[in-house]
Write a protein that binds this DNA or RNA. Structure first.
Length: 290
DNA sequence: CTCCAGGTTGTGT
DNA sequence: ACACAACATGGA
């Protein structure tokens, strides 16, 4: 049989955990737990092997960077494992890697993510690709690329509504209108804090969305996105003693100070394990009067 | 029918 | 500065 193009990963990599921890929205699961991940205008499929996983792609060079293969995760696990609350996350989410996704795609994706659920975010982004993205022929067949900046600049607010972006549509139009290629390039070179304040200038981008873009689109590991889930787990693990309920900005500072340059990894382990727990829970109902 | 989702924005104190 | 309602939409 034909030899597949691609490469194998044998250490610290699990496609399910990496793709389902909310850092990317364009992926699918096929039979036998084969995963497909799409990013920009390329994609790869991931198969289980006796020793690890095989990444099937004609763009090996790109996907090695995408999966952050140069980073030594054993060191990170060792360091973060010292913190009990993260240790359980590492166990549940072993093989999580922080992806390096295209910057512009992350900005648009995480504006859509605000006050939204992951299923819906995925659907909206997929529809956006079908509406405005280039139809690509590759080794697996046909699919739609994520739209380029100039492609999205041509969309109206109405068209964003049409793909299910809801009230974020006007924000998307405003944000995309002011983004330029030069601005995106410059962002790559700026220090984390400066890049963050640049991002926050965009409509629809606040602290949390900016942190996600920094982490997943700019590979800045010294950020800690605080969302509703992290907020809850903070109150559970740390908030008991401090009677004051901390605001998100303070929770963020707390974690960044605690985990430093490993903040991004810690956050992903934490986020994945919270949502795993939630999935196991029975659907709850409110206490009934009796 | 009500509540929630990887929050941000605009308004009022 | 801080609090808080409003914002589309679909699933539970």
């Amino acid at each position: 049989m034909k030899k597949l193009q691609g490469f194998e990963i044998v250490e610290d990599f699990h496609p399910k955990h990496t793709l389902e921890c909310g850092q990317i929205f364009r992926f699918s699961v096929f039979e036998n737990e084969v995963y497909e991940v799409r990013t920009g205008k390329v994609r790869a499929r991931i198969h289980k092997t006796p020793n690890g996983f095989f990444v099937e792609t004609v763009n090996s060079e790109f996907f090695r960077k995408f999966f952050d293969l140069k980073t030594d995760y054993s060191f990170i696990k060792k360091e973060l494992g010292k913190h009990k609350e993260i240790a359980t996350g590492i166990a549940h989410g072993h093989g999580i890697r922080i992806l390096k996704s295209p910057l512009f795609e992350m900005i648009v994706s995480f504006i859509i993510s605000a006050n939204n659920n992951i299923k819906k975010i995925q659907k909206t982004i997929e529809k956006l690709c079908e509406l405005a993205g280039e139809k690509v022929q590759d080794e697996f067949g046909e699919f739609f690329a994520f739209p380029t900046l100039s492609q999205l600049k041509q969309l109206s607010e109405k068209e964003f509504y049409g793909v299910g972006a809801g009230y974020r549509s006007s924000l998307l139009v405003k944000a995309i209108a002011v983004i330029s290629d030069a601005w995106l390039e410059q962002l790559e070179t700026l220090p984390t804090e400066e890049a963050r304040s640049e991002l926050i200038k965009l409509a629809g981008v606040g602290g949390k969305v900016a942190d996600c873009v920094l982490l997943f689109g700019l590979s800045r590991k010294n950020v800690f996105p605080v969302d509703v889930w992290v907020e809850r787990v903070f109150q559970q693990h740390y908030g008991r003693r401090n009677q004051a309920i901390l605001k998100r900005e303070d929770i963020r500072k707390f974690f960044v100070e605690k985990f430093g340059d490993l903040s991004g990894f810690a956050q992903q382990f934490l986020f994945y394990s919270i949502r795993e727990e939630k999935g196991k829970q029975k659907p709850y109902r409110r206490a009934e009067a009796n």
